[in-house]
Structures are given as C-alpha cells and as structure tokens.
Design a protein around this nucleic acid. Sequence first.
RNA 1: GGGUAUGUAGCUCAGCGGAAGAGCAUUCGCCUCACACGCGAAGGGUCACAGGUUCAAACCCUGUCAUACCCACCA
Length: 899
Amino acid sequence: MEMEKVYNPKDVEQKWYKYWIENKTFAVKPDSIRKPFTIVIPPPNVTGSLHMGHALNNTLQDIIIRFKKLQGFNTCWVPGTDHGGIATQNVVEKLLKKEGKTKYDLGREKFLETMWQWRVETGDIILDQLKKLGCGLDWDRTAFTMDEERSKAVKKAFIKLYGKGLIYRGKRLVNWCTRCGTALSDIEVEHENEKSSLWHIKYPLKNSDEYIVVATTRPETMLGDTAVAVNPNDERYTKLVGKTIILPLVNREIKIVADYIVDQTFGTGAVKVTPAHDATDYEIAKRNDLEIIEIIDTKGKMMNVPGKYEGMNVADARKAVVEDLLSQDLLINTEEYSHSVGRCYRCGTTIEPLMSEQWFLNVGEMSKRAVDAANKEETKFYPPSWKKPYVLWLENLRDWCISRQIWWGHRIPVYYCVDENGQKKTDCKPVAAFETPKECNSCKGTKFSQDEDVLDTWFSSALWPMSVFNWGSNENNEDLKYFYPTSVLATGHEILYLWVARMVQFGLEFMNEIPYNDIFIHGIVRDKSGKKMSKSLGNVIDPLGTMDKFGTDALRFSLAQAAAPGRDMQISDESFLAARNFANKIWNASRFIIMNLEGIGGLGEVKPSELADEWIIAEFANTAKKVKSSYESYDIDTAARELYDFFWTKYCDWYIELSKIRIMSEDKEVKKQVLSILVYILKGTLQLLSPIMPFITAEIWEFVNGNYELRITNYESTATDVRQIIAESSFLPVIARSDTDTAIQEMSVVQEIITRIRTIRSEMNISPAVQIEAIFNVLDGSKKANVQNNASYIKQLAKISSIKFGENIARPKNSALAVASGFEIFLPLEGLIDIEKEKARLSKEIVLAQQEIERTNSKLQNDNFVKRAPEIEIEKIKARLSEATTKIEKINESLKFLG
RNA sequence: GGGUAUGUAGCUCAGCGGAAGAGCAUUCGCCUCACACGCGAAGGGUCACAGGUUCAAACCCUGUCAUACCCACCA
C-alpha cells in the first residue's frame, strides 16, 4: 500500500475514530494497579452545536488525556451534556412561537413533553461533533444533567442541604427577568454601560415652601419611594433629616432619613429610596425600618400606583412620570449620564430588581472551605493569576438564589401538605423528599403538592464531578472511590464563578474533598481582528468547516499552538493553513523514510555512527524532555511549538538531508544503520505529537510498523494484538547521552559553515546545479578535526565538489570569503563572482563585527564586570571579542586583495 | 471604585537576567531523486514610555500611558 503524495485527512480520520470506538480504546474501569487520571467534560448545553470555544476546550482536554494515557495512567474522560435551563427553554419557546403558540397554550406537562422530544432529536449532535474532533471520551459513561441518575443526585443534594437548614425560602429583592419570567442569581446578570439620563427632581417638604432635590436614573420608581436618604455627615441636609416630604404625583408622606451609604459627592447628595426595586435602597430600608412598596410586577408592568400609571410598562411609565413632573415644574434638569445596566445573560432583557419569594442556599460555610482549599493549594490554578479573583469572589459571596420560575429543569423536591381544595396547610411543615410523601407527619393528611419552581441549572452542574460517577444512587461505589477527586478541570474563565467555584463548594460539602486538583484556565478564541466570535457579529469560524477544509489534526494543532494558559488567542485561516502544511510535512518526511524501508530486511539497533546521529539523538532527548514537562504543566502551546520546531527544522531540514548520503549508499548495512535512527526519532516524535495530532500520527505509525494492511484496510477487531501508538505506557525510551552538549556544539560549527557557504551561493546567484570548490584556511586548529571528519556534510548540503584544508593559505583570485568558527573559507568563483557585490557584502560584515568589538570591549573594560560577573561569562565575552577581531582582520586582508 | 492580564519585526505570537526569535507576509534564487501544503537565502525591531535595582534588564521593582476582560450597593 502506497502513501499518497499529499496527506488526505478525511478517510484517515473516519477510519481511526471508528477503530477506536469499536475497540473501546477509551473505555475504562477502576484498576487496582494503575493510577487513575480523570477529567469530566464541561458539559455543553444540549442546545449547542460545536463552536470554536468547544473545539479548543475539548482539544486541550483530549491532549491531556492522551498524554496521560501514554504515560501509563488509567485515563478516564467522561462525556455528557447539560440541560441548560433557561437557555434551552428559550430555544424551544422560540420554535413554538413560529407555530404561533406559547408554552402556556400547551401547559406545563405538554410543554415538557415537547422539550424532551426535542432533546432526544437534537441533544446528541454536539457529542457526535466531539467524535469528529477525535476526542478520546469514554462514551459508555455519557451523562446528561437531567437523566435519571443525575436527577437522583440533584434531589439528594437538595434534601441534604435542606436538612442542614442551609436551604431556605424567603421573600427578598432578586434579579428578575421580565421576559424569561424568572428570578436569576447575581452572576447571571451581565452589566453593561448604557447611555441614559440623570433626572433632578424636586421633592417638596410638608408644610413648607422648601424642597429637597434628588437625582435619579429611574424616575418611574419614584412612585414606590418610601423615603429620601442623605449622608449623616452632610451638613447641607443635617437640619432636614427627620422632616416629612410630600411625594409628588403620589402625595404620600415620606421621611428624610440619614444613611452612611449615601455618597455626598454624587448628584445632589440626596437619594430617593425605592426599597422594592433597588438593591441599595432595599438595604437602606432595612436599616431604617422603611415601608416597602412594590410597584413593578413580574411582567414589568406598574402596580400599586396612581390609576393613571397602573398597568403601564416601565418605559412608558418613565416617560409619563417625566412629563408630569415637568408640567408641575418639579423637574429641575436632565443630565446626560452613562451608567451600567443589568441584563439577563440569556436573553439580554433589562433586569428588574423586585421582591419575590424564592429559595436560597446559604453558601457561607462552603465558601470558606473553598477559600481554604485554594489557599492551601489543594486546588491549584494554571495560570496561578486566577487564584486571587477566585478567592475574592468566594469571600464576597452572598446567598445563592437557586429557584427559577421556568419549567425545564429539576423541579424542587419540596412537598406541601394540602387540603381538599389544594390549599397549602400552613400548620404542616413542607417536606423535602425523593418522592411525594405518603403521609403528612403532623396532620396525617395524604394530599401533597410539589413546589412549582425548578432549580438553577448550575445547581446540577455543580454536582457534575460526583454525579457522573453515580453519587446520587450510591455514595460508596467503586467508580466514585477510584475516580474522585478528578485530576484536572479544563475550562474557559467565563464560567469560573458560575460553575468552577460551585463545584468546589459542593465537592467539599458532599464528598468532603475537592472535586479536582488542578484548574486549567484557557483563553477565549477570538477572530483575526481580536474580536470575540459571536453569531451577531458574523465572525464565527465553524470548526466543522475548518476540519473539512484543513483536517482535524490541523485544527487541533493550531488551537494547541495558540493555547497559552489564560491567554486569549486569535485564530484565522492562516494559522490553520500553517498547521495543515505541518501535517503534510510530517506525512512526506514519513513517506520518504517508509519508502526507503523496503527491502532492507528489518531495522537494527539504534547505534550512532557519526556526528549527525549523535546530534539528532541529543536534540531529540532535549525535545522530549521539554515536551513532556510542558504537557505536564498544561503548557500545551510550548509542547506544540517545540515539536514543530524540532521536527521541521532539525529533523527534516538537517538530519534527513544529511542522512541521504547513507540512505543512497550501496552498502545495505550503512543504509540500515541510518534508517534505524531515522525511524527511532520519527516514532518518538510521532508519539510525543500524538496527543495533539492523533489521526495522522496513528496512521503513519502503522505504516512505519508495516502494519498498515492489517490495521488500515481490514482492521477488524481481531487486530488487537498490534500495539497502537496510543496504547498505555507506550512511550519509547528516550536515549540520553552524556556527551549531548559536545554533539550539539560540534554540529553547530558544521551548520554555521554550511549556512555561510549557502549565503554566498545565494547572494552570488550561483545555481544549485553548479558545484564549487572550497578551501579551508584553518585559524583555530582545535576545530579542524571535527570539520574535516564531517566534510561530506558540507559537500552534500552546500553543494561543494571538493574541500581542501591548509594553513596560511592566501586568498585565491576571484574567490568569495566566509569567516566562520575558526576557519577562513575561500570559494574560488572564476567567472561567477561579482567583485563589487563581494566587496559590499564584506564591508557590511565588517560593520557588524566592529559593533561586536565595541560591545564586548566596553564590557571587558568595565572593572565591575570583570570583578563581579561569573568566570564563564567573561570567557564567553573574550571569545566573542577575539572572534570578531579575527574576522575583521581577515576581511580587511581580503578587501585589500580585491583592491 | 477595585482586580487581573496584555503592550516585542507589517500581522499572529514565543522568549522572562548574560549577543533580539518563530510562523505568516515581503524580496531573491530553485520543479535538488519525501514534500512547491516544498527547498535555500535575504531584508525587517531605541522589545509602549519614564525612573530604579544589577557588573549586566525585553526580562526584576516603581510609576505613567494604552488595550482587553472580570468584580462592585456609579442613586
């Protein structure tokens, strides 16, 4: 079976993923010998289809999992999806709307049926797309936050917290989305700056001509004012505190109160207080024992207000109030003003703070424990800079509003004892339970109604690392014991608080143990111009399209290469193209080697026989070490770049080129010897690269091993005896050598010489077909042997016909000069040389050498440097100085010679 | 108001105490028996600015200025 000239990813990818699935390559069970390495996927919403953010997130996880597998860990990566609460309900509501229906037309039960049906039809799309990405997930463990097992976990967690008294119900000021018709938690509100106005309004004092001026961005809420507040230290208002105001338009009597929170410098220093619709005002009201009047209902309409305004929506009410104030001469001025407005993170509607009866979770103790864990480095951040904001957030956390007034989600498992008419019996205590209770504990009644609300979708997400291992049905099961705590959580920073922090809190609460040791925070994928990708901007790049066009490995490589921990990245076709070219380079280098394996009767031992061999083995050892430690610390970008550089520049451009002399050799043993090394380095590199580019490396691996007939064409499950590239503990041993540095140093001398000759060839426009002669005038005898021994390299790569060595050789006529690493190299170029060009070239080199002399001299003349710098450093500088001096000397001689 | 990052070649980014690097783009030469998705070579940078520490700073410290994101009870 021949390899194609250009790598064609499509067939290869399909074949291999199918093979992995059919052979259960990623299926895993607890194992008493091997250590586990576990990741739970950040479950994408069932609404979603794969976007670049998912592609990045899952590529990184897959890289980590595959690397750990190679290292010998029993790796487990659990897939799944999130029911996505409000977001998902909104999608289905929109579909209904197209048919001209609302969820109320269907009713709760029918609507949920529709939702489930829709979920069954579309919910797994994203999982299939993850397969296309090549993710090594254990599909047998696929979980869904609303499946039976996960639902059990949710109920169990709720009941436990309820039993501890940490969950309570209360009427509080909450964030309300009038469109979604539900309360939201504090972090589900997104703040955005918006241009608006600051209205200055006169509030007349009772029985007086005096008035106090308040400034507000929400004039319509004045209808619900129950006080005006000033700062107790504000001398302007000291004598007004305690006085009564007649609230305009409403004619209610309200008091002027003093409260420290009022900023004297803002506006007029006097604040109207609307406790029912503003968080600050609510606190002022609590401190000052003020009445709370609700004037906006859950639909965003005015209520409990003078008839004229009753039923108006907020925006209309604002206009009306402003007009009325104006006509009564109570509006002093309107200032342009920009302030931040809260919006629903799911639909963008302006949030209305209002009083509502909700379920809350007291998170005080859990937060403290999470902070402790972070401070003790039990949860460790990559990069560490995320720790501080994380801790700060936890420390200032308020109780979590966990109830939502939607239908899609986990219904709150609280049951109320009701009478014949379905009315709640106030004397009987509500019960939290897995199922409807049989009998009321206090009145022995048998009729119950379940709480109408559902839980915040993030409540079930917070249980994910436990619930996927069936914590819900059995706390002591083997999987949970073995895989929990998981090893690392990889995610973008946008859900650090929403999800990551809460998993830690719940993990500590229920398992008494953090859910993961490492928190790997990666950046956000941006477009070419640095903008966040979004549908509305029309700048999204579809990863599926990218995979089709450039190949999955190319997509993965370009994401990996850009994924420095914590940093956002810009992605475009150019980066995919570069990665695709890399894949093709790997393919062709491998193809070249594989072609040459034919007929050599197997490979031999890896035994270096000359400098290039020593050198590439040394370089590979260095690369392998760096790459492994980079994977280890989630510096995936570094690993990718190291491999790219090593493979392309060192392996292909130098080693393969140098090996060609021996590959073409008539002597079979010589050929075999060099191919053994070529294959060893190739296989080693493929393995190190396989976490990032699993498909192409797997395919080539089989070709190299000569297994491709078996594996690729009819790989039926019987072929399991052949070790795959991604088998556990299959890292090839890295040959470390004691003389690593010597080989690298000696090689660099040869490389420098080759490069300098090539430069001359290029600048003198000498066709590659023309072989030229080189004369080496040895300046530094210690380097002679090395270069002489490797003269064939110079001949091969610099296209030199013959090399002469000598001492005190004068520059031949019409020759070009290169001074490098202890040699003066003359290239006789009779009829080819352009004397003027040569002069210009040499003059330029002199300038550079001159600068070098100045730099090094000034250092050596600095007493402090000579006294305090380490010996090695001083030696280096001296060497540089002498090299530059020789160079100038030699070039000057030549210039004189040229006339 | 507080916090966190980031400012290095035209673009995307590495480097984080001892001579400024890569890829793409540009220019020149090559269809060299693996690859034109390629090979060889060249040009291109007061490493945001100002101080400081150090024999030595793109790298450490301080401040300033940009940019991005996050948090906050900006009426």
